[in-house]
Design a protein around this nucleic acid. Structure first.
Length: 835
RNA sequence: GCCGGUGUGGUGGAAUGGUAGACACCAGGGACUUAAAAUCCCUUGGGAGCGAUCCCGUACCGGUUCGAGUCCGGUCACCGGCACCA
């Protein structure tokens, strides 16, 4: 019989559609398991070959959990608001809602073709008013609890997308989406106070089962640093405050620097003698983007504030003050003390402006560069009462002194900024607030939610940076829910991250029109037991959604502190690089490639892209080899966490494996009983596959299944043996497994599908062969192998080793001084020349 | 610069401190076939030898150990994240 994958997959998908064997039951007495994959953005391009990697992996975990007796929630949905759809809509003159619907249909078709065990009845779509009603509701709770505020601030503006970007969306000074240079633009924006949660977002990581690199990346992003704020008196009525982590170096201060954006500079117009020069510098700085300022960091610039004097509180010395754009307004106090002896940036600045460089920590040569001690055991000098202390002792000593003197206090700072939560675009959730001249910003009554996105003629972004909604006067002009007077709606929309912040909660109770999730459902299903997603979301979606969840916890809307108990991350799927130097033979051709493509030519694999022509479409793979082959291959491709390169050749190996599985039915005896001869391989494989799935080591699990198949071919098998292969294979390749389960008569015998059977159990004692090959080493070098009964005692093993012909030769003229036996594995004989 | 990770055959990749290269892909040889595809069998880290065998080999240098791809110290290369964060 031939393995007709197309017919088999169609047959079983239809059956599952009808029987819904993956329905999750809220409140079931079984233990629950909530497995989650990041829901896709339904782009016009359709499913990418990268999607099936995480989807298949968690599908396998979910399928195994079901067979292990769990009540499994494995949902799917679509994160459908966002720029690409809007841009596609503008270009093709189709409404974004229609584009979205078409894309979702296409994604749904593709996902169903891959045989995922999603509970489709719980599918969510973030652009559905029934869904975003609750996104808006959560925003209102944030607003009412003081977590949302509006402020005018310079934002990252992408002139091409005509949109403001969050810090997280700016990569190397360029727009994450289109790659244009980001500029600064003053804009009134809604902000969310994520910084209020900074400590908890760091500290609560300790109790979570997240892969380490995710934890580290989130911690670095939040960037907590503990230091000290120090006040300096000046010859103006104002004191200034600097932030430092190195209070120990206070005696080394030779100047102070203020950021060009600092408001004190406006206030001090009168005292600053060279105000024109200072003003010119400030204007020049404002024209640079943050990125440009960073790029130019090699060459420090600045202007002294003539007429301004500052007093170092530690030693009473008078030091000059400068304005320089190497000081950021957004971090600390916007003013920094200059310690050129022990900070490289300050050293460069002081060198350029001829300022004194004072050594206060010994051990370096400060005439050459700033000395930043690698450990904190360096000794303080030129530092008054700190002299002779180590840096480690001096930091708290100075801190304590400063606090006692009243000009210092401990302070914790974060790199994390509040979250810019508005976008000047059409295709997003409307913000349910109105602005009333009398009452200010007023929330819509919850009964008026959802505030539906109005149908507009033109949803193109505007050149002035206002949202397209601002042109809809009918919609904008409304009445104040508070006083009934005239008011205007907020016309900005939410960022594309809004809907994905809480979707895992909606899956628990997707059709509830009374609450965003019922208490009962949330308490039953929460938290998500296993969440897999891309590393690129670590400081975006994953952090945002932890923040919202913590807020919801604080207002009593959810019962756990954290949304996700476990987080894993998959590596990307790359395509072959058509410009790789290894593709050509001659040196001239290689050189030509390097000249043309630079370092790109040195990489064998690169991100798939249309322009390189190396994109693999899952539809084509499924058509040629079937969904089961696609699933097996994408799991067999390599270590789940690492990037992997797609290979059309290697796909065939996975197809061959499934053919071999299927053809085992031709040689299996009809007995429904397992045969003793295959006992060891069956139990060994059950053990390996069971353990590997839980660790996402799908590649070695499949390798074990291949070994089992090879052994069945070599030794022969019964249907009773084959049933174990079918059950172990079923999470990986569910269609072929069901077909084989039926054809071998087990479906009729049990009245169940393979996926509904119990996961096979292994007996540790049966995982071992009766006789075993052991390595024999002489002085640590492998010299021979011997066949020994499993579990044989040391004496027997040593005797067998010494009786081996090869070993006998090694032992001639030598005496045995020591033996090391590793049970069932190896014996090492230590020999030395006989005297 | 800081933080994290990785380095194993022609390729993807396996190896709780215990037989390095499992399992595959590619390649070569053979069987079947009029032929091709598919399938099946064999070979396949490098080197020496007719052979039994022997030597070398997990980026590089050193250490711990009976034994190191694995642990420790140092070096190099690449990948990812952050970056004038005081």
């Amino acid at each position: 019989m031939k393995y007709d994958f197309a017919a088999i997959e169609k047959k079983w998908q239809d059956k599952w559609e009808e029987l819904k064997p993956y329905a999750a039951v809220t409140g079931s007495a079984k233990p629950k398991f909530y497995g989650l994959i990041e829901f896709p953005y339904p782009s016009a391009a359709g499913l990418h070959v990268g999607h099936p990697r995480p989807f298949t992996a968690i599908d396998i975990v979910a399928r195994k959990k079901r067979m292990e007796g769990y009540n499994v929630l494995f949902p799917i949905g679509f994160d459908a608001f966002g720029l690409p759809t809007e841009n596609f809509a503008i270009k093709n003159h189709i409404h974004p809602a229609i584009v979205t619907r078409q894309n979702i249909e296409n994604f749904t078709r593709q996902l169903k073709m891959l045989g995922y065990s999603f509970d489709w009845d719980r599918c969510v779509d973030t652009t559905d008013p029934k869904y975003y009603k609750w996104t808006q509701w959560i925003f209102l709770q944030l607003f009412k609890n003081g977590m949302a505020y509006k402020t005018t601030m310079p934002i990252n503006w992408c002139p091409s997308c005509k949109i403001g970007l969050a810090n997280e969306e700016v990569v190397e000074g360029k727009c994450e989406r289109c790659g244009s240079d980001v500029v600064r633009k003053e804009k009134s924006q809604w902000m969310l106070r994520i910084t209020k949660y900074a400590d908890r977002l760091i500290d609560d990581l300790d109790d979570l089962d997240f892969i380490e690199r995710v934890k580290v990346q989130q911690k670095n992003w939040i960037g907590r640093s503990t230091g000290c704020e120090v006040s300096f008196k000046t010859n103006t009525p104002d004191d200034i405050t600097v932030y430092t982590t190195r209070a120990d170096t206070l005696f080394g201060v030779s100047y102070v620097v203020i950021s060009p954006e600092h408001p004190l500079l406006d206030k001090w117009q009168e005292q600053i003698e060279n105000r024109d020069e200072v003003q010119a510098y400030r204007e020049a700085a404002s024209r640079k983007s943050d990125f440009e300022r960073g790029e130019l960091n090699k060459d420090k610039t600045g202007v002294q504030l003539k007429g301004i004097e500052v007093i170092n509180p530690a030693n009473g010395e008078i030091v000059p003050m400068f304005v320089s754009d190497y000081v950021l307004m957004g971090y600390g106090t916007g003013i920094v003390m200059g310690v050129p002896g022990h900070d490289q940036r300050d050293w460069e600045f002081a060198t350029k402006f001829g300022l004194p460089i004072i050594e206060v920590v010994s051990g370096g040569d400060i005439t050459k560069e700033a000395f930043v001690a690698k450990d904190d055991s360096a000794i303080m000098v030129n530092s008054g009462f700190l002299n002779g202390m180590t840096v480690k002792e001096a930091i708290p000593a100075m801190k304590e002194y400063a606090v006692k003197q009243g000009w210092g206090r401990e302070k914790v700072n974060y790199k994390l900024r509040d979250w810019v939560f508005t976008r000047q675009r059409y295709w997003g959730e409307p913000i349910p607030l109105v602005n009333c001249e009398k009452c200010g910003w007023v929330p819509l009554p919850e009964s008026e939610l959802p505030l539906v996105l109005p149908n507009v003629e033109s949803y193109e972004p505007t050149d002035d940076g206002e949202s397209p909604l601002s042109k809809m006067t009918d919609w904008v002009n409304t009445t104040c829910p508070c006083c009934g007077g005239p008011a205007k709606r907020e016309t900005d929309t939410m960022p594309n991250w809004a809907g994905s912040n809480w979707y895992y909660l909606r899956y628990m109770d997707p059709h509830n029109d009374k609450e965003f999730v019922s208490k009962e459902a949330e308490e039953y299903w929460g938290p998500v037991d296993w969440y897999n997603g891309g590393m690129e979301h670590t400081t975006l979606h994953l952090l945002y959604s932890r923040f919202w969840h913590k807020f919801l916890y604080d207002i009593g809307a959810v019962h756990t502190k954290e949304p996700y108990a476990k987080r894993t991350s998959h590596g990307m799927i790359l395509g072959r690089n058509p410009h790789y130097v290894g593709n050509v033979e001659s040196e001239e051709e290689k050189q030509a490639l390097i000249e043309k493509y630079g370092s790109q030519a040195l990489r064998p694999a690169v991100k798939m892209s249309k322009s390189l022509g190396n994109v693999v479409n899952p539809d084509d793979v499924i058509k040629a080899y079937g969904a089961d082959t696609m699933r097996v291959y994408i799991m067999f491709i390599g270590d789940f966490e690492k990037t992997a390169t797609w290979s059309d050749e290697a796909v065939k190996g996975s197809k061959r494996f499934l053919d071999r599985c299927f053809n085992l039915m031709d040689i299996a005896s009809e007995s429904m009983e397992a045969t003793p001869a295959n006992e060891a391989i069956i139990h060994k494989t059950i053990k390996k596959v069971t353990e590997d799935i839980d660790q996402l080591k799908m590649n070695t699990a499949i390798a074990a299944l291949m070994t089992m198949v090879n052994e069945f071919y070599a030794k022969g098998l019964s249907r009773g043996d084959l049933q174990y292969l079918i059950l172990l294979l079923s999470p990986f390749a569910p269609h072929i497994a069901e077909e084989m389960w039926e054809l071998t008569g087990f479906a009729a015998k049990t009245g169940r599908m393979a996926m509904q059977m119990d996961w096979p159990k292994y007996d540790e004692a049966k995982t071992v062969d009766a006789v075993r090959e052991m390595a024999v080493q002489v002085n640590g070098k492998l010299r021979s192998t011997i066949q020994v009964a499993t579990g044989a005692d040391d004496e027997t093993v040593i005797a067998a080793a010494c009786a081996d012909e090869k070993i006998k030769r090694q032992m001639e003229g030598m005496q045995l001084v020591k033996t090391i036996v590793v049970k069932n594995k190896l014996v090492n004989l230590i020999l030395k020349p006989a005297k």
